[in-house]
Simulated scan of single mutants.
Amino acid sequence: MNAQTYSVASNPAQTENGTLRVLFAGESQTPPKHALGPKIYDYYLMHAIESGQGVFRTETDVYHLGPGDCFLIHPGQLVSYVSDEGNPWRYRWVAFDGELAGEQAKAAGFSPEHPVLHVTLDSQVPHYIAMIQSRFNSRRESAHMAAIGCLHLILADCLDHVERPAQLTMAEPQIQRTVKQMINYMTSQYAHPVSIEQMCASLGYNRAYLSRIFKKETGMTPVAYLLKLRIDQSKRLLRERPELSVEQVSASVGLTDPLYFSRQFKRFFGQSPTSYRQKIAGRSSSPDK
C-alpha cells in the first residue's frame, strides 16, 4: 500500500474576491477510510482522483468513484466523502471562488445536481492542479494569474474529456451550436484575409456540409454572410474614423482590393464609400434648426 502523503499550497496573492480566484491546491495519498464531513464549504472545491476507490455523498446521491473521476463540491452543499479501506484514494484538489465561478463550473459540465464527471485517463486535470500548487509554492507575484489560467485549462479539459455516447447523427441543437461557432469565427476573424475553407478546416467539417446547414439556419451562405459582415463593419469605420482613407478602411475589414470593396459597398448601400462619408460629414456639420 502506498504511504500516506499530504501537501497543500495557498494563493500567495492577497486578492479581493473578483470574477475568478484560485484559493489553494493540494494533493494526498489518503489513508484507509479517510473521511471528511458531513460539512459545507463556502467555495468551490474540485477533487481529481488519480488512483484508488472511495465514496462521495451529497444530500441526495451517493457516488462510488475511482481513477479518472472528478467531483466538485459547490458552496453551501452538504457533503461527505471517505476513502476505501483496502484501496484508498490518491487525489488532487483545487479550491476557487468568484463571481464567475458558478458559471464556469456549469459550462464545464458540473452542477449541484450533477457534481461528478468521469474524464478519460489521458486527462490533464491532475497535471494542471499540480502546476497550480507548484506556482503557489514558488511565491511569485505571477502565481495568481498563472493559477487562473490553469483553472480555465482544468475546466476546459473536463468539458473535452467527458465520456459521452457517440452520436451517429448530428442533433438539431448541435447544428445550431456549429452555426454559432461559424458566426463567432467570422465575427472575430473578418479583419483578416480569412477564407471559408480555412474556417471549415478549423471546425473539422467539409465546406459543402457547413454551407448547407449555415444557409438553412441564417438564410445566407457563409460567403455572403462574411461579405455583409465586412461591409457593415466598414460602414461603422467610415462613420466613426474619418481620418482613415477608403483604402485603410477596406484593409481594416479584410478586403485588400479597394476597388472591389467600393463596388460591394455600393451594391449594399447604393452609394460609394466616399459619397457615404461625405453625406455623414454634411449631416454632422449642419447647424441645428
Rank of each mutant, 00 (worst) to 15 (best):
N17T: 14
F24R: 09
A25C: 13
G26H: 08
S28W: 05
P38W: 06
Y41L: 12
A48R: 12
G52T: 03
V62D: 02
Y63G: 05
G66C: 09
D84P: 15
G86C: 13
W89A: 04
G109T: 07
G109I: 10
S111A: 11
T120H: 09
T120E: 07
D122Y: 13
S123E: 01
Q124I: 09
Q124F: 02
Q124N: 09
I132F: 07
R140F: 06
R140D: 01
R140S: 09
I148L: 10
L153M: 10
L155C: 05
E163P: 01
Q167V: 12
M170V: 13
Q174G: 10
M182Y: 07
T187G: 12
A191D: 02
E197I: 15
N206R: 11
Y209D: 06
Y209V: 04
F214N: 07
G219F: 05
M220Y: 11
T221S: 09
P222S: 04
Y225S: 05
Y225V: 03
S234E: 00
S234I: 02
K235A: 03
R236W: 03
E240P: 01
P242V: 00
L244A: 09
V246Y: 06
E247I: 11
S252P: 12
V253R: 01
V253N: 06
V253P: 06
D257N: 05
F261N: 00
F265I: 04
Q271M: 14
Q271L: 11
S275T: 15
Y276L: 08
R277F: 00
P287S: 12
